[in-house]
């Protein structure tokens, strides 16, 4: 039986030494997304996300100007002025040194104030645990110098992860070159996730866009409540 390839710990440690980042963030190039859900599925697998919950989801949006579909990956924006962080009554939501916003599960009381406060619908309630959960940029992976699971699994390079606080970081340069902008800028939360070719009509469509999910043994449009 052939041996499995060994993990390149030395290389990982070398990358780890370059941490921490000044401002961890994502750049999402919507021109590349093919709506394959690889990011959602890998995220669920990597983080053991329960059925019905999503840390990362891909919305299918009907374009208003044509009969084509656009795809919009949505995840926690790790806002610099995060309303969830302010609303949490038990200080379970904190900001790490590199700017990422994380939920301490031990401290979460399940009040859902963070879910109500998030302008992006990025936080879900783990019904079994009764606690809120969301993307933490795969802290367990990035602390080893690995990319988050969604970035690693994306077949088209739509999602990119890097230090947005470093002007020379390739991801930051890529965002600047292609005019990346945050989603729902008017919410004033200063997100750490930037989109390339994000269009204004997507703000409205993102709230009602389709995410197919099993619920009560029926396939439903999760957010519109409309049965298929």
């Amino acid at each position: 039986m052939s041996q499995l390839p060994s993990i390149p710990w030395e290389r990982l440690e070398r990358r780890q030494r370059s941490l921490p980042m000044k401002r961890a963030g994502f750049v999402i190039d919507l021109r590349r997304c093919i709506g394959c859900h690889a990011c959602s599925i890998s995220c669920k697998t990597e983080n053991d996300v329960p059925l019905g919950g999503f840390r990362n989801r891909v919305r299918y949006l009907e374009r208003p100007d044509s009969d084509r579909i656009s795809y919009l990956p949505l995840l926690c924006m790790h806002c610099q002025d995060a309303p969830c962080l302010e609303a949490c009554p038990t200080s379970a939501i904190t900001r790490m040194a590199d700017g990422r916003v994380v939920i301490n599960q031990e401290q979460c009381c399940g009040m859902k104030a963070c879910i109500a406060a998030c302008p992006y619908g990025a936080i879900y309630l783990d019904a079994k645990a009764g606690k809120a959960d969301k993307c933490d940029m795969c802290t367990h992976r990035t602390s080893l110098g690995l990319d988050p699971a969604c970035v690693a699994s994306c077949p088209t390079g739509t999602l990119r992860f890097g230090d947005l606080g470093d002007a020379n970081h390739p991801v930051t340069r890529y965002a600047q070159e292609h005019g990346a902008k945050p989603f729902k800028e008017d919410a004033g939360t200063r997100p750490s996730v930037y989109y390339i070719r994000h269009e204004p009509w997507m703000n409205e469509a993102a709230a009602t866009g389709v995410q197919i999910t099993p619920e009560d043994d029926e396939i439903v449009y999760e957010q519109t409540g409309e049965e298929l």
Partner: peptide
Amino acid sequence: YDLGSSDRFYLNFSQFNPSSAIAWGT
């Protein structure tokens, strides 16, 4: 009932976030 557990309700007393209206409300 909404929280689903009285244990988690007590967290509202033991932890405090001054920017949270719920924390003050408790």
